Amino acid sequence: MEIERKYLIDKQNLPKDLDRYPCRHIEQGYLCTEPVVRIRRDNDDYFLTYKSKGHMVREEYNLPLTKEAYEHLKAKTDGRLIVKDRYMIPLQDGLTIELDIFGGDLAPLLLAEVEFPDEAAANAFEPPAWFKEDVTFSSQYHNSTLSKK
Rank of each mutant, 00 (worst) to 15 (best):
residue 2 E to R: 01
residue 3 I to T: 03
residue 6 K to M: 04
residue 9 I to T: 15
residue 10 D to R: 13
residue 12 Q to K: 09
residue 14 L to M: 03
residue 15 P to K: 04
residue 16 K to I: 07
residue 19 D to M: 07
residue 21 Y to I: 00
residue 21 Y to Q: 01
residue 23 C to V: 08
residue 26 I to Q: 14
residue 26 I to Y: 13
residue 26 I to V: 14
residue 33 T to N: 15
residue 34 E to K: 10
residue 40 R to A: 06
residue 41 R to H: 08
residue 44 D to T: 13
residue 46 Y to A: 02
residue 47 F to E: 14
residue 47 F to K: 10
residue 53 K to E: 13
residue 54 G to W: 05
residue 54 G to K: 05
residue 56 M to V: 07
residue 56 M to E: 13
residue 58 R to G: 04
residue 60 E to D: 01
residue 63 L to W: 10
residue 66 T to W: 04
residue 66 T to R: 00
residue 70 Y to D: 02
residue 71 E to T: 10
residue 72 H to D: 12
residue 73 L to Q: 06
residue 74 K to H: 06
residue 78 D to H: 08
residue 80 R to I: 07
residue 81 L to I: 05
residue 83 V to S: 11
residue 84 K to D: 07
residue 84 K to N: 06
residue 86 R to E: 09
residue 88 M to W: 03
residue 90 P to M: 06
residue 94 G to Y: 07
residue 94 G to H: 09
residue 97 I to P: 12
residue 97 I to D: 13
residue 100 D to T: 07
residue 101 I to S: 09
residue 103 G to E: 11
residue 104 G to F: 05
residue 105 D to N: 05
residue 111 L to N: 11
residue 114 V to S: 02
residue 119 E to F: 10
residue 120 A to R: 15
residue 121 A to M: 09
residue 123 N to A: 12
residue 127 P to K: 01
residue 128 P to D: 03
residue 128 P to V: 04
residue 129 A to G: 13
residue 130 W to K: 02
residue 132 K to T: 11
residue 133 E to C: 10
residue 135 V to Q: 05
residue 146 L to A: 09
residue 146 L to E: 12
